[in-house]
Design a protein around this nucleic acid. Structure first.
Length: 731
DNA sequence: AGCACGCCGACT
DNA sequence: GTCGGCGTGCTC
């Protein structure tokens, strides 16, 4: 009887394909194989094996590939994610199986040169310069040496040919140096020590001293502690314990937080920087790290959400840092939330999962409150540092002049801060100069021609820009609608406009604007962040990116320019988002010795979000918000989903979306909310139309959505429908 | 994801 | 007349 293998192929296919296993080939589930598919050969994974009677007309498996097989938990994760997200199984597999693309296998050349005792046969000026540098006998990379000597690489090559320099093959830089769990570290505070004990309690690989048979508790743990309470040091101890137990640990971080600062902090605890995994690491290095993970060599991996799909050999712990971060949401291809998938992977691997945050997501808080998750609290800042003092500036009373956005009390506070030689941050979560441009003559508002959003003026670039799809046009001199000359007006402030105002109000001060569109790109932005952290700037004007990642030790005053932004956005998570963001950004004040101060400009100081922020009473905010959600049947008590219809043609996307809406026929407990607030967006060359659905908790959302799709207009090749279960953003 | 087949418009 | 755009369907 021939063996038949079910092979899952990492393409948008729902089911595995069957192949005959040729005689002499032993296959097991999870093996990585090559199979013919149409005219080509492709990589797949053994998803099942059967014995079948009768000669079949199936094509044979070409052979097994020399990669570690996918473990059972990882295969279950693929199945689980495909089921939960309604994505084709093959698509889910493709997140796990990113095998080497030979194309970009280039790694920086691993050849170093060293001086020999042979003198150059023909000394030239350039050669002398090189020899002066190389005289110390140290090993250097070819290009590094050329650069240091100020000559071109060909001079070095000439010297190698001449025998003056010798080449030495260099061991590739280790991808995964071994962290030392017992590296000397600064002692923990008593509160931290207690949190560590509490955290480890119940971890299956942890034996509490003196307690021989403590029952394992595999519930995920929410590690909650205010900004500056030292959560990181606490979970580092869990990582250390995990390494001592001979297991691997994964630390997930939002992409933005994966900074040199964090890696250094890790190095201070463990002696070496951890292996880092993110979209930027490519080629050979990526493959070597992957292999090191699969062999259990890499003990700790710090990575962005895609690290969740690495083939760990012995996973012992997953930490999700800043678990409330929206960056954990994957919004294209397979839509998933990395925090939740981490919890699933932990369950499948039988390993503990720790979620950390100063401002947990509502759903995580609810899970903790209902004992689905354990809850470990760090209520105080580390080392007796005080929480910043937060006060409101009521904009109805302390109005700035017309056309200005900084209120007099805030200006004064900044001036005093600067006089003391300290830093101030003005926070406004709006890039560009002005969020809306309109014509004074005819009232025409400039809108993106792709998306349903206003165009944002970027004065520096002299352009109107769509923040959804990146569409940009030159800011017109005359209204494109009525032709009136020079009569466009900028409505509302963005960070650029605040910078303009700050330059007038704080003359002679060094002012920097930090936003994700920083001129010169991500690398320049990173340098600028470092410069700010080093105190080389007086006033920082920043968007939400300053709320995360970097610490600014000289910062003692935070001014929130418009705390009310986002409270009226129509997003069911608006209150939660705003609270988290403001809590994080005001928490930046006073990281150094000095206690910090935050001033919050608002038109509605009595709004529950603002009031909770001012009083520092996060508990009250969570309690009220949870109650409101429950009453409205919103997540985490009900569920939300979006159907995302996409097509390369705007009209097609829209028409198909509307047709789908008409075919909804919702049963009891399901509400089709209709198109999202700004339903249309252009994403990567395709128009997306978003339809929102809300269900009560006990409704089978997956089943309903499947039925709906089956009933709706037939999905043709150019139109695609994706399902985003519990979407995190409605903008 | 590729790749082929097929149907339409615009070129030597 | 054909070249080539892309929409459509198929791959065990």
């Amino acid at each position: 009887m021939p063996s038949v293998a079910e092979i899952l192929i990492p393409l948008a296919l729902d089911t595995p394909y069957s192949y005959v296993v040729p005689a002499g080939l032993e296959l097991a589930n999870g093996d990585v194989v090559q199979v013919p598919l149409g005219p080509r050969e492709i990589v797949g994974v053994v998803w099942g094996l059967t014995e079948t009677a009768g000669g079949s007309n199936l094509r044979p498996v070409t052979g097994r590939l020399p990669y570690p097989p996918l473990s059972e938990p990882l295969r279950s994760l693929v199945d689980w994610i495909a089921r939960y997200t309604l994505a084709p199984k093959g698509s889910a597999l493709s997140m796990v199986l990113r095998l080497p693309d030979e194309a970009n296998a280039a790694e920086t050349i691993r050849v170093a040169v060293r001086i020999t005792d042979k003198p150059p046969s023909r000394p030239t000026a350039a050669r002398t310069k090189v020899l002066a540098v190389a005289a110390d006998g140290a090993l250097r990379g070819k290009s590094a040496l050329a650069k240091e000597a100020g000559v071109s690489v060909s001079v070095i090559d000439g010297l190698i040919d001449d025998g003056v320099l010798e080449t030495v093959a260099v061991e590739p830089e280790p991808v995964a140096p071994r962290p030392d769990p017992d590296f000397p570290r600064t002692p923990l505070s008593p509160a931290q020590g207690e949190a560590v004990d509490e955290l480890l309690k119940g971890f299956p690989w942890h034996q509490p001293p003196g307690d021989t048979e403590a029952p394992a508790d595999l519930r995920p743990v929410l590690l909650e502690g205010v900004t500056g309470s030292g959560k990181t040091e606490v979970y580092f101890e869990a990582v250390a314990a995990c390494i001592r137990a001979g297991l691997q640990a994964l630390i997930l971080m939002p992409e933005i937080a994966l900074t040199a600062q964090f890696l250094d902090r890790f190095a201070a605890r463990f002696g070496v920087r951890p292996a880092a995994w993110h979209s930027g690491i490519g080629g050979k290095r990526r493959e070597r790290l992957r292999a090191a993970v699969a062999e259990g060599e890499a003990l700790v991996v710090v990575g962005a959400r895609s690290a969740l799909f690495l083939p760990f050999a012995r996973l012992g712990l997953i930490v999700v840092d800043e678990e409330h971060e929206t960056a954990y949401k994957q919004e294209d291809g397979v839509h998933y939330h990395a925090r939740d998938m981490a919890v699933v992977r932990g369950r499948l691997e039988g390993c503990p999962v720790v979620l950390t945050s100063a401002t947990p997501a509502i759903e995580t808080r609810v899970n903790a409150a209902r004992d689905r998750y354990r809850h470990v609290l760090l209520p105080e800042r580390f080392g007796g540092r005080k929480m910043p003092d937060i006060a409101a500036i009521d904009m109805r009373r302390d109005q700035p002049e017309r056309g200005r956005f900084l209120s007099p009390p805030l200006v004064n506070a900044v001036k005093h801060t600067l006089e003391r030689g300290e830093q101030a941050l003005l926070f406004l979560n709006r890039r560009g100069y002005a969020p809306l441009t309109l014509c004074r003559a005819c009232g025409h508002r400039y809108q993106c021609k792709n998306c349903s959003t206003w165009l944002v003026e970027h004065r520096f670039r002299r352009a109107l820009v769509c923040h959804q799809c990146g569409y940009a046009e030159r800011r017109p001199e005359a209204c494109t609608e009525c032709g009136t000359f020079d009569n466009l007006t900028a409505c509302g402030p963005g960070v650029e406009r605040i910078a303009e105002e700050a330059a007038e109000v704080f003359p002679g001060r060094r002012i920097v604007v930090l936003s994700s569109d920083f001129p010169g790109g991500a690398e320049r932005l990173r340098q600028e962040l470092d410069a700010v952290a080093a105190g080389e700037c007086d006033v920082v004007i920043g968007t939400q990116l300053v709320a995360k990642g970097h610490n600014f030790p000289f910062l003692t005053l935070v001014g929130v320019l418009d705390a009310d932004i986002g409270l009226t956005s129509g997003d069911p998570r608006a209150a939660e988002r705003t609270f988290q963001l403001l809590q994080q950004v005001t928490g930046r004040a006073g990281r150094g010795e000095k206690p910090g101060r935050a001033l919050v400009q608002t038109y509605q100081p009595d709004h529950p979000v603002i009031a909770a922020l001012l009083s520092g009473d996060a508990e009250r905010f969570y309690a009220e918000e949870i109650q409101a959600r429950e009453a409205a049947g919103l997540p985490p008590f009900g569920r939300l989903a979006a159907l995302i219809v996409s097509a390369s043609d705007r009209a097609v996307a829209e028409a198909h979306g509307q047709a789908l809406a008409r075919a909804a026929d919702p049963p009891e407990g399901v509400m089709v909310l209709g198109p999202a607030e700004a339903p249309l967006a252009l994403v990567r060359g395709r128009y997306r139309f978003r339809l929102l659905v809300k269900t009560e908790r006990n409704v089978d959302l997956q089943g309903y959505l499947r039925a709906w799709l089956a009933r709706g207009p037939k999905v043709r090749g150019n139109v695609r429908v994706a399902i985003d279960v519990d979407p995190q953003s409605f903008l």
